[in-house]
């Protein structure tokens, strides 16, 4: 009694569509030959991305735990430190990220409906939003605070600190927002590649894995900011 059928089942090769130059790029898109179908490949990529997002959440969880511990230890330092942040810039950045999340979601829809023009426009808006976010972060938040001496750890030299442990607050502020900003940059880089590929016609109905996973990542960047914003800016 053998267990494995070795006869009747022909070797599974991917049916690569013929390379017709008139066909849009996404219709000719191959998938890796260890998959049985394009749909499985797509599913796997989504599961993989969700798992990766889990790791990102846990990475930030570390920062949130440190935040919770030190806020419990030094509530005064946190309240004082938070007052030095400008809620308006923070709120504006929140709005910018929310808009960008919306446009990414819209671009996936565009790909599904084969709206190639809108797809590019929405992706571009997302990138502009990312850029705006970073500009606001650096020019209007980091730079003036750094100049005033509101710096992390030993670099802290702000002369009017009301609490001796305020440098811990600034350490956490720069660490949390800095790592988040790094994620914005990475996400923007990935979306930029997606945009370039969209100009080459890589995405279309049922073939939008790239936008889907990049969009998931971008939503995560947004969600983390949604948590960071009240925790950092809205302490009373």
């Amino acid at each position: 009694m053998t267990s494995i059928e070795t006869g009747g089942n022909p070797p599974q090769h991917n049916q690569q569509p013929p390379a017709l130059s008139t066909e849009p790029r996404w219709k000719r898109q191959p998938f890796a030959n260890h998959w049985r179908s394009h749909a499985e490949d797509f599913d796997a990529c989504k599961i993989g991305m969700w798992l990766f997002l889990t790791t990102e959440v846990l990475l930030f969880a570390g920062i949130f735990v440190a935040y919770a511990v030190f806020r419990m230890w030094y509530p005064e330092a946190f309240a004082n430190g938070s007052h030095h942040l400008d809620v308006h810039w923070g709120a504006l950045n929140t709005v910018i990220l929310l808009i960008s999340s919306f446009t990414v979601a819209a671009s996936i829809r565009n790909a599904q409906l084969n709206q190639q023009g809108l797809l590019k426009i929405n992706l571009s808006i997302t990138l502009v939003c990312a850029l705006l976010f970073m500009i606001i972060k650096f020019t209007f938040e980091y730079a003036p605070k750094w100049a005033e001496g509101k710096r992390p750890g030993v670099w802290f030299s702000y002369p009017f600190a009301a609490d001796p442990n305020e440098h811990i607050w600034w350490s956490l502020y720069y660490t949390a927002t800095g790592i988040h900003a790094l994620h914005v940059l990475i996400g923007a880089g990935v979306l930029f590649v997606v945009l370039l590929k969209s100009f080459k016609g890589w995405y279309g109905p049922k073939h939008y894995t790239g936008i889907e996973v990049a969009g998931l990542y971008w939503h995560l960047v947004d969600v983390i900011w949604i948590f960071l914003f009240p925790l950092l800016y809205l302490i009373h």
Partner: peptide, 28 residues
Amino acid sequence: PVIGITLLLLIFERVFHVGIFDPRMGGD
């Protein structure tokens, strides 16, 4: 990921002296 952020904070601690784990600076 948790060790990732821990080691990152440790590197910040050594390079930038952020004080999160340093008892002399209020860290733990």
